Computed example of a mutant assay.
Amino acid sequence: MSLFNIFNVSGSGMAAQSVRLNTTASNIANADSVSSSIDETYRARHPIFEAEMAKASHQQQSSQSVAVKGIVESDAPLQKQFSPNHPMADNDGFIYKPNVNVMEEMADMISASRSYQMNVQVSEAAKSMLQQTLRIGK
Score class of each variant (00 low, 15 high):
residue 101 N to L: 13
residue 109 M to T: 01
residue 116 Y to G: 05
residue 113 S to M: 10
residue 101 N to C: 13
residue 117 Q to K: 11
residue 119 N to F: 03
residue 94 F to C: 02
residue 85 N to D: 15
residue 103 M to H: 09
residue 88 M to W: 00
residue 109 M to P: 00
residue 119 N to Y: 08
residue 112 A to H: 00
residue 89 A to M: 05
residue 85 N to M: 14
residue 109 M to I: 09
residue 106 M to G: 15
residue 106 M to F: 09
residue 87 P to M: 05
residue 85 N to T: 13
residue 87 P to E: 08
residue 96 Y to K: 08
residue 102 V to S: 06
residue 85 N to H: 14
residue 92 D to M: 15
residue 102 V to N: 01
residue 114 R to T: 06
residue 115 S to F: 08
residue 108 D to A: 14
residue 85 N to Y: 12
residue 108 D to F: 09
residue 86 H to L: 12
residue 113 S to F: 03
residue 102 V to W: 06
residue 117 Q to N: 14
residue 103 M to P: 05
residue 86 H to S: 10
residue 88 M to A: 15
residue 85 N to V: 12
residue 111 S to Q: 01
residue 95 I to T: 02
residue 104 E to K: 03
residue 113 S to P: 00
residue 92 D to V: 05
residue 115 S to Y: 03
residue 115 S to W: 02
residue 98 P to G: 12
residue 120 V to Y: 06
residue 99 N to C: 02
residue 112 A to N: 02
residue 115 S to N: 13
residue 109 M to C: 11
residue 96 Y to R: 04
residue 100 V to P: 03
residue 88 M to E: 13
residue 88 M to P: 11
residue 93 G to C: 11
residue 85 N to F: 15
residue 91 N to F: 11
residue 88 M to V: 12
residue 119 N to L: 00
residue 120 V to S: 02
residue 116 Y to P: 08
residue 99 N to E: 08
residue 114 R to F: 04
residue 115 S to V: 03
residue 111 S to P: 06
residue 100 V to S: 06
residue 107 A to R: 09
residue 88 M to N: 15
residue 89 A to G: 15
residue 89 A to V: 06
residue 119 N to I: 01
residue 87 P to A: 04
residue 104 E to A: 11
residue 107 A to M: 06
residue 111 S to V: 07
residue 110 I to E: 12
residue 103 M to G: 12
residue 98 P to A: 03
residue 105 E to K: 00
residue 89 A to C: 14
residue 93 G to H: 02
residue 108 D to R: 15
residue 120 V to L: 15
residue 102 V to R: 04
residue 110 I to V: 06
residue 108 D to G: 05
residue 94 F to D: 04
residue 113 S to K: 03
residue 88 M to D: 13
residue 102 V to E: 02
residue 97 K to M: 15
residue 108 D to M: 15
residue 100 V to T: 07
residue 108 D to V: 09
residue 113 S to Y: 01
residue 95 I to N: 01
residue 94 F to E: 01
residue 105 E to L: 01
residue 103 M to F: 15
residue 86 H to Q: 11
residue 92 D to I: 05
residue 108 D to E: 14
residue 100 V to E: 10
residue 112 A to L: 07
residue 113 S to C: 09
residue 111 S to Y: 04
